[in-house]
Lab assay of single mutants.
Amino acid sequence: EEPWTQNQQKLLELALQQYPRGSSDRWDKIARCVPSKSKEDCIARYKLLVE
């Protein structure tokens, strides 16, 4: 798996703010905001960050 770039991390953080918990299809929308990362990548990264 490719490491996360600073840019991808920033895009993930912005998308998390844009689509708060409870948004419909939240992770699909977030993944579309982060180039070359899947929905599963984004969820895994999020879990890593909040632990």
Rank of each mutant, 00 (worst) to 15 (best):
A44F: 07
N7T: 09
K47A: 05
L16K: 02
R45I: 01
R45L: 03
L16D: 01
K10C: 10
V50G: 15
P20T: 07
T5K: 02
A44G: 06
E40C: 07
C33L: 13
Q8S: 04
R21L: 10
W4V: 01
K37H: 15
I43T: 03
Q17F: 08
Q9F: 05
K10S: 08
E13L: 09
E51Y: 15
R32A: 13
Y19V: 08
W4C: 02
T5F: 02
L14N: 15
R21T: 11
K10A: 08
R45W: 05
C42Y: 00
V34C: 03
K37R: 08
D41C: 06
D41H: 06
W4H: 02
I30S: 00
Q6P: 11
P3C: 15
I30H: 02
V34Q: 04
R45Q: 12
L16M: 12
C42L: 01
K29R: 13
Q17G: 09
P20E: 04
W27M: 04
E2S: 05
R32E: 15
P20F: 01
G22E: 13
E51H: 15
N7W: 12
L14M: 12
L11F: 12
E13K: 10
L16G: 03
L49D: 11
R21M: 09
L12D: 00
Q17I: 06
Y46G: 12
P35V: 07
V50K: 15
L14S: 14
L14W: 09
V34Y: 01
Q17R: 11
S23H: 10
Q18P: 00
K29Y: 08
K10E: 11
G22A: 11
C42H: 02
A15E: 00
S24V: 14
L16A: 09
L16S: 03
S36Q: 13
A15K: 02
I43W: 07
G22R: 06
L12A: 02
R21P: 11
N7H: 13
K37N: 00
R21D: 15
L12E: 01
L11V: 09
G22H: 08
D28R: 11
K29S: 12
P35G: 11
D41T: 00
Y46A: 13
R21W: 04
Q9R: 09
P20K: 15
W27S: 02
S38Y: 01
D41N: 09
I30P: 02
D25V: 05
L14V: 11
W27Y: 01
A31G: 05
Q9Y: 02
E40G: 10
C33T: 08
R21E: 14
K47N: 11
S36D: 11
Y19N: 06
R26Y: 13
R21N: 05
A31E: 08
S36I: 09
L49R: 14
E51T: 05
D25C: 11
A44Q: 13
S38T: 14
D41V: 02
D28Q: 10
R21H: 05
D28M: 07
Q17P: 07
C42T: 07
D41P: 00
L12T: 01
Y19Q: 03
W27P: 02
L11A: 11
P35K: 12
P35Q: 12
Y19K: 01
S23V: 12
P3E: 15
L11I: 06
Q6Y: 05
P3H: 15
S23E: 15
P20Y: 02
W27T: 02
W27L: 02
V50R: 12
K10R: 14
R32V: 09
A44I: 09
K10N: 07
Q8F: 00
T5R: 02
S36G: 14
K37S: 01
S24M: 12
S23F: 09
L14R: 11
D25P: 04
S24D: 13
S23G: 13
C42G: 02
Q6N: 15
V50S: 09
R26L: 05
Y46I: 04
Q9A: 03
E13C: 08
Q8N: 03
L48I: 09
Q9H: 08
R26N: 10
K47C: 15
Y19I: 12
C33Q: 10
S36H: 13
Q6C: 13
E51K: 10
Q8D: 10
N7R: 12
V34F: 03
Q9G: 06
L48P: 04
T5S: 03
L49A: 14
R21Y: 05
V50D: 04
E1A: 01
R26K: 06
S23D: 14
D41W: 00
P35T: 07
K47T: 10
L48Q: 13
K47F: 08
A31I: 01
A31H: 04
G22Y: 04
D25L: 07
E13M: 05
R32Y: 11
R45M: 14
L12P: 01
A44V: 07
Y46W: 07
D25G: 10
D25S: 07
Q17W: 05
T5I: 03
K37D: 00
A15P: 01
A31K: 03
W4R: 02
A44S: 12
C33K: 07
Q8T: 04
Q8E: 07
P20D: 08
Y46R: 04
S36E: 15
A15C: 06
E51G: 09
S24Y: 15
Y46N: 14
V50L: 12
W27H: 03
K10D: 10
N7F: 09
R45G: 04
S24G: 13
E40P: 08
L48H: 09
K29T: 07
L11K: 10
L11Y: 08
P3R: 09
L14D: 12
R45F: 05
Q9M: 14
R26W: 03
E51C: 06
C42W: 01
L49Q: 12
Q6K: 10
L16P: 00
P20A: 04
Q8A: 07
W27E: 05
S38D: 04
I43N: 03
E13I: 04
K47E: 11
G22F: 09
G22I: 11
L11E: 08
K37F: 02
S24N: 06
I43G: 04
K29F: 07
D41S: 12
K29D: 03
Y19D: 03
Y46C: 08
K39I: 04
S36Y: 12
S24Q: 11
G22T: 07
L11S: 08
L11T: 11
K10M: 08
Y46M: 04
L49G: 15
A15H: 01
E1N: 05
V34R: 00
L12V: 00
L11W: 06
N7E: 15
T5V: 01
Y46H: 13
Q18M: 10
K29L: 11
I30V: 10
R26P: 04
L11G: 07
T5H: 06
D25N: 08
S38E: 06
L12M: 10
S23T: 13
Q8I: 01
D25W: 06
Q8V: 01
L49H: 15
K10T: 13
S36W: 07
P20W: 03
I30R: 02
K29H: 11
Q18S: 10
Y19W: 09
L16W: 02
L49P: 07
R26C: 08
L11R: 08
S23M: 13
K39C: 04
N7P: 10
